[in-house]
Structure formats: C-alpha cells, structure tokens
C-alpha cells in the first residue's frame, strides 16, 4: 500500500468522502496543496489508532482537527512532522506527501522535515534559556543568521509576529520560564516561526491558557495564516468555528468528515459529526 502513486487509486467523484478533498469548498480559502495524505494507517503496538485517512491540506489556511478525546487527531497531527518516531512501538502505513515527497520514505531526513513543518505544543515548553535565546537558538543552529544584528532583527521580528514584542522587549535576557502561561505559549509560537517553516502544527495550543490569552492566540493564528499553513488540533469547537477555514472531524481513528468550517458547524454532512457538534457525545 505504501507509496502507491496517487494516480493509481480510484479517487471517486470530484469532491466528497474518500478523496481527501473537503465536501464543500470554502471560496474565501486558498487551494494550493500543502500536504496530501492518502490511506494513512497507524498502530500503537497492536492497537490501530488511525484508519485509512485521506486528506488534502491547503496552503495559507487554518485547518482545524476536531473530535472527542482519543479519536486520533493529535496522533494524526504528529504524523505530519514525524514526531511519532519518538514513541516506541508505533508503526505506520500510507502516504504523507509534501512538496512531492513522501515524508516517511527512507531517505527523508526527519530533521529536515521538521525544519519545514514546525510545531506548537499543548503545554508551553520554553527552553531553559533567556527569552532572546529561546528564539535565536534554532535559527543560529540552522545558519539562517549569524551576525549579531541579523539575529537581533530576527528575534524582534519573530516576537512582533507573535505579538509578544511590546511585552518583553525590555527583558529579553530574562528566562523564558519567567513569563506567564499565555506569554510562554506565544514565545513558543515565535520560536516556531523564527525558523521560517511552511507549515505550523498546533496541538491544542490554547487549552492550557486563560480566555484572554486564548483570544490573543486566536488573533495571532489568523494573522499568521497569511504566511504559514496552520493545522491545529482543538477540543474547543467554538475555537474551530472562529478561526478555521476547513475543519476535519475525527472519530475512533477515522476521518469522518472534512468540510468547509461554516458548513461543518451549520449543516454537517454526517450524522456522527452532527451529534458531536450538537453535544450528543464527546
């Protein structure tokens, strides 16, 4: 199954289930392909956690992954930058394609992949370094910048893009852990965008934060999508409805419905999605 050329597979009707394309098009969204996933299956040991996932993710969009806990949405997210490699006992089949390459192929360097697919975690995890070094560290290692002025400029831009500059510009040398939770999370976003990835994965980025910080992060995501492709897992349906262009609903390891966000929340195509959205379970 693995690496089967996409063209050989029956893609079915032009749009809808099983093709990986959203059921209803969002005309405000862009539709250049960023990540293409076909027939993705994943096991933790004997337990299958993802079943036959097909999805196309488009550039400069926010794609939200929703579903009850344990439905596989975070697992799926971590397939996109191969963070699942770190978990022993995970086996995987299927295609995750980016820039014309299967990210799971043998000669793909997962470190290179993660350069292009950044990630923000549920709990803010700043490094035990100063605010400045939290951001400057990775670009320096990647040789994106070397001169002091360039580094300064890069740090400032990342912090500005993350909406944190005004709050921290006078205390750049303080440890990153001295910030509040919401600020720490924006620091982590700044850290992620400082290496200029193309895709940013966000794993429930605001679930550990207060409502005001959450609102700030949502505004930030909206701004960031002009430059980056954002895929976010959220347990909060209102958040998905507010920020996402497309929404994918996962249930028991399957992708049940992938749809334009507005349609998903007003007129879902599947019964399961409707039950979940209206609060019958979850």
């Amino acid at each position: 199954m693995m690496n089967m050329p996409v063209s050989e597979r029956s893609l079915g009707p032009a749009a809808g289930q099983g093709t990986g394309q959203p059921m209803v098009r969002n005309d405000n969204a862009q539709h250049e392909l960023s990540v293409r996933v076909r027939d993705l299956n994943l096991w933790y040991g004997e337990t299958q956690a993802l079943k036959n996932i097909d999805i196309d993710v488009y550039q400069h969009n926010i794609t939200a992954l929703i579903g009850p806990s344990g439905c596989g949405k975070s697992t799926f997210l971590r397939c996109l930058n191969r963070m699942n490699d770190l978990i022993p006992g995970v086996s995987l089949q299927g295609l995750v394609e980016m820039d014309g390459r299967d990210v799971n192929e043998a000669r793909m360097d997962e470190v290179a992949l993660r350069r292009r697919v950044g990630m923000v975690f549920q709990k803010p995890n700043p490094f035990p370094k100063s605010i400045y070094d939290n951001i400057a560290y990775a670009p320096r290692m990647h040789d994106l910048v070397s001169r002091k002025v360039d580094v300064d400029e890069l740090v400032e831009r990342a912090l500005r893009d993350a909406g944190l500059w005004e709050e921290v510009k006078d205390k750049l040398q303080e440890p990153g852990t001295s910030l509040s939770g919401g600020q720490q999370q924006r620091l982590c976003i700044a850290r992620a965008i400082a290496v200029r990835p193309e895709v940013i994965l966000m794993d429930e980025p605001s679930s550990a934060l207060d409502p005001i910080s959450t609102a700030t992060i949502e505004d930030l995501m909206d701004k960031l999508k002009r430059q980056y492709t954002i895929i976010t897992v959220t347990h909060n349906m209102q958040q998905a409805a507010r920020v996402a262009d497309y929404t994918a609903f996962f249930h028991l390891g399957e992708l049940v419905e992938y749809n334009d966000t507005q349609t998903m929340f007003s007129n879902p195509a599947t019964k399961k999605a409707e039950d979940y959205i209206t609060g019958r379970y979850g």
């Binding site: 360097d109 290179a112 200029r196």
Partner: peptide, 17 residues
C-alpha cells in the same frame, strides 16, 4: 523562498555527524 528537503538535508549532514 523556502529550501527543498534535499537542500536542508545537505546542510544537516555535518550536524548529524
């Protein structure tokens, strides 16, 4: 604008070592 996988991999060779 952004680098391809192969370009990044080439830069990474020294760091992997």
């Amino acid at each position: 604008m952004s680098q391809s996988f192969d370009e990044i991999s080439a830069q990474l060779r020294r760091r992997h070592r």
